[in-house]
Write a protein that binds this DNA or RNA. Structure first.
Length: 880
RNA sequence: GGGGCUAUAGCUCAGGGGGAGAGCGCUUGACUCACAUUCAAGAGGCCGCUGGUUCGAUCCCAGCUAGCCCCACCA
């Protein structure tokens, strides 16, 4: 019993790193790649190499690890493929900020030197992130780790780009795009975040040429008027019908603008007339296309006014606005100003206000790609959990617009397009040596691709595509994708259509969507608020198991969760409970006791009860985990271990274990103690990998090769179903609870031993007789007398009833009769109310006619029970 | 303008067509030989409002109210 040296408080620090090292060394996480075996595959949502892991990663990865570890224990060929994302804009910003501290800009460094610095950064942060993931205990196959810009992924990106180009699904053209003047790049639609902000709507008079008066246009962006090339009105708007086809004069500039009619104009907004600026507004751009209008770019990519802005050239756009408003006012052309809130687009990465800008960009044509991506989800080939996210996904894909994929930054996959002075564009997998049409030397497009372009290929590029590797054949499609709802559009949707286009198969069968981790007040964790909690800090203080358990309990699929200190402590306490339950078992069993309980050793009622409860738990946990109800499963295990196993079974087992002799019974109890503990450790292992491994290794110290990582996932055995014994034990437990309650009621001194009389009919009495030792110990009763019938109710004692059992506490001192009377009366009232409810139902003929027979019978049984209980309470009242 | 989520104990949240649950907090008692990061007992809820479906609704449906989120090109 050397194990008794285990310290009474679990210390994760002494365990976790050592075990993780062992697991890695022994290669437990390496996917076997056995073609004969069923697979279970997850590719990790690759964390950005921009910084460190946050709580969201911890949740996301914990969920994946739970799914993976369980399947591994089930014997599947399990692969969890880890990796990181180069995160183009985000990383570039970080490195630029870093350089700024040295007083250097990337332009000063030049492209090559800058990229060297980014790679250095990447190396450093990659290492940091991997260490953090390992701290969490994640069972990734590190031998297959990938990076979105490694050799293979880069090849996949080029292959996909060229193939899509050849299929006419990628094109280059001049369109309005979202331009971030700070990041100096175009962005896709979803990288722009819209916020309602207060603004001013300016009413400006555009004089009518060759006519009287002026047309009033309303705009929130007067600075763009310099680029106006028309004024539009609604075709049905009688106010302006006469003006259509005529011209107005653009103030401050003096350009002649045609008045056009277009359905796009809302007659009820503003003045009903819209200035049209094709170079700086998406809708105006579309309208200009319909009417063959020219465009004038007045705001440049640096956010300053272009030479086309005349005397405003060179001004920052905001400043230009102020000047223009002033000048209009001076000219008497500013007719009115009105408060108007409007949606302002901001850069997702740097919060700078987005400028819609006409520029030449690369796009992915989405409609043809979206179609199958819609169909395969609708057909159920891909299932979202929870199901409601299917709608979110479909809603987006069904309204998708072409995807702008070129970025004017340096860090990322260079676009595989080369331009020749002769005008030829070459899109190729490898750098062309010369221009195919003129023989000249083409120059590569300086731009890089949207980060999400490479992320979209992740489920197959990481498995070796475009090579037809064994891994690809074996592990694709993956089983589950686990991610937060915030990147369904960015990533999930794009993986689906890329997977369908290039693998002709869905990338995953199930998408499990979880919520966001918020702070204790429910706010999003963010750097600016400074309310982020570092997962590493929690791990340092409480251990990875505790953090994992905290994250996975107390939250339902798809719902956000609040991260609260109290919950962490509760999980820590649970880990400690596990530890001490194990200490107890190790102190009281020998290694020879390990092994399933069998007929050779006589199982006690308590043994059978816990085995039955264990079986129930195994079945329910299994079903919950199949349904991705991980929080529920964890809660169930928590309750079983803490309440059933520790509070009840261990206490019951002590009676046998500490009794003199009874060797056979002791053997049985020890076998059950270890069997159930071992099973519960295995069920808990996906949630809390470290402590469960530590304990299992101690439980099976004879076998140095033992590891819980590859231990079989528990299954319920019918041989351990004992429904009748389970019922009987429940009765004994109820009686114990009742006695404890009476003790507390009477505020008996702690050590006071009790005498009780238990009255019960023969059969029930037999159950109690069997349970008497338990009852004496667990209810702290010294004398228990079992009777069939009491001639007279004992006087002046506390009493209670449990089913057919009536019990009386024989107290040596006096009891507070008034207080006891009050308690019994309250009980009588409660029964009265229940009875009334039952009878109400049973007297309702419609209920009797329509409710299922089972329900009616239940109700009748209840009525009888309540009625009986009430009589007993009355009798005890009378006896007081 | 569309779409979604949430409303349950003081707090944070599970649950689910037939007698309301957990953790924390609170009250009372106990340092009982695995654990005071513990044990035992308890108080505390018209399950947001109004209708409908049903024999029966906290649960299903509709509407409302309140809060949160996502999407969208009314300048």
């Amino acid at each position: 019993m050397t194990e008794s040296k285990l310290p009474p408080v679990y210390d994760p620090g002494a365990v976790e790193d050592r075990l993780y090292g062992e697991w890695l060394e022994r290669g437990f996480f390496r996917a076997p790649g056995d073609p004969a075996k069923e697979t279970f595959t997850i590719v990790i949502p690759p964390p950005n190499v921009t910084g460190s892991l946050h709580m969201g990663h911890a949740l996301d990865c914990t969920i994946q690890d739970i799914l993976i570890r369980r399947r591994r224990m089930m014997g599947l060929d399990t692969l969890w493929l880890p990796g990181t994302d180069h995160a183009g804009i985000a990383t570039q910003i970080k490195v630029e900020e870093h350089l700024a501290e040295e007083g250097v800009t990337r332009q000063e460094l030049g492209r090559e030197a800058f990229l060297e610095r980014v790679w250095e950064w990447k190396e450093e942060y990659h290492g940091r992130i991997v260490r953090q993931l390992q701290k969490l205990g994640l069972s990734c196959d590190w031998s297959r780790e990938r990076f979105t810009m490694d050799e293979g992924c880069s090849r996949a990106v080029r292959e996909v780009f060229v193939a899509l180009y050849e299929r006419g699904l990628i094109y280059r053209g001049d369109y309005i795009t979202n331009w971030c003047p700070r990041c100096h790049t175009a962005l896709s639609d979803i990288e722009v975040e819209h916020e309602e902000e207060a603004g001013t709507l300016y009413f400006i008079a555009y004089p009518v040429i060759d006519g009287e008066g002026a047309v009033t246009v309303a705009t929130t962006r007067p600075e763009t008027m310099l680029g106006d090339t028309a004024v539009a009105v609604h075709p049905q708007d009688v106010r302006y019908r006469a003006l259509v086809g005529r011209e107005v004069l653009l103030p401050l500039v003096g350009r002649r603008l045609p008045v056009v009619a277009d359905e796009y104009v809302e007659p009820d907004f503003g003045s009903g007339a819209v200035k049209i600026t094709p170079a700086h507004d998406y809708n105006d751009f579309l309208l200009a296309g319909r009417h063959g209008l020219p465009s004038v770019t007045v705001i440049g990519s640096n956010g300053r006014m272009t030479p086309a802005a005349g005397r405003y050239a060179g001004l920052e756009a905001g400043e230009a606005r102020r000047r223009i408003v002033e000048d209009l006012r001076a000219a008497g052309l500013l007719l009115a100003e009105q408060e108007q809130s409007h949606a302002l687009g901001r850069c997702q990465r740097c919060r700078t206000v987005i400028e819609p800008l006409l520029s030449k960009q690369w796009f992915v044509r989405m409609k043809p790609l979206a179609e199958p991506a819609i169909a395969r989800v609708k057909s159920g080939e891909i299932r979202f959990v929870p199901e409601r996210f299917t709608r979110v996904y479909l809603n987006w894909v069904e309204n998708i617009r072409d995807w702008c994929i070129s970025r004017q930054i340096w860090w990322g996959h260079r676009i595989p397009a080369w331009y020749c002075a002769c005008g030829e564009t070459v899109v190729a997998r490898l750098e062309p040596e010369s221009c195919p049409s003129c023989g000249g030397v083409p120059v590569q497009d300086p731009d890089v691709l949207d980060t999400w372009f490479s992320s979209a290929l992740w489920p197959f590029s990481t498995l070796g595509w475009p090579e037809r590797t064994d891994d690809l054949a074996h592990y694709y499609p993956t089983s589950v994708l686990v991610t937060g709802y915030d990147i369904i559009f960015f990533w999930v949707a794009r993986m689906i259509f890329m997977g369908l286009e290039f693998m002709e198969e869905v990338p995953f069968r199930t998408v499990y969507i979880h919520g966001l981790v918020r702070d204790a007040q429910g706010r999003k964790m963010s750097k600016s608020l400074g309310n982020g909690i570092d997962p590493l800090e929690i791990i340092e203080r409480y251990g990875a198991d505790t953090l994992r358990f905290t994250l996975v309990t107390g939250q339902a699929p798809g719902n956000d969760l609040r991260f609260r200190q109290e919950n962490v402590e509760n999980s820590r306490n649970f880990a400690n409970k596990i530890w001490n339950a194990s200490r107890f078992v190790l102190m009281n069993t020998a290694l020879t006791d390990v092994g399933p309980p069998d007929n050779k050793r006589p199982l006690s009622a308590a043994d059978r009860w816990i085995l039955h409860r264990y079986n129930e738990t195994v079945r329910r946990v299994d079903r919950l985990m199949d349904d991705f109800e991980l929080g529920e499963a964890a809660r169930l295990l928590y309750d079983f271990l803490w309440s059933d196993y520790c509070d009840w079974y261990v206490e019951m087992a002590k009676i046998t274990l500490y009794a003199p002799e009874k060797e056979a019974e002791k053997q049985a109890a020890r076998a059950v103690l270890t069997f159930v503990l071992d099973g519960i450790m295995r069920l808990l292992h996906p949630f809390m990998p470290f402590i469960t491994e530590e304990i299992r290794q101690k439980l099976s110290a004879r076998d140095p090769a033992a590891t819980i990582v590859l231990a079989p996932w528990p299954m319920a055995t019918e041989a351990h179903d004992f429904p009748a014994e389970h019922e009987r034990m429940n009765l004994v437990m109820e009686v114990i609870r009742a006695i404890r309650a009476l003790r507390a009621e009477a505020q008996l001194p702690p050590g006071a031993k009790l005498s009780v009389i238990l009255q019960a009919p023969e059969e029930t009495g037999a159950v109690l007789a069997e349970g008497l030792p338990l009852l004496k110990r667990l209810a702290n009763v010294s004398e228990a007398q079992l009777v069939l019938q009491l001639a007279d109710k004992p006087r002046c004692c506390l009493s209670a009833a449990v089913g057919e059992v009536e019990l009386y506490l024989l107290l040596e001192g006096t009891i507070d009769v008034a207080q006891e009377r009050q308690r019994l009366e309250k009980e009588e009232q409660r029964l009265e109310a229940e009875l009334a409810r039952c009878r109400g139902k049973l007297q309702n003929e419609v209920f009797l006619a329509k409710a299922p027979a089972r329900v009616v019978e239940e109700e009748q049984a209840k009525e009888a029970e309540y009625s009986l209980q009430r009589e007993k309470v009355r009798a005890r009242l009378a006896a007081l």
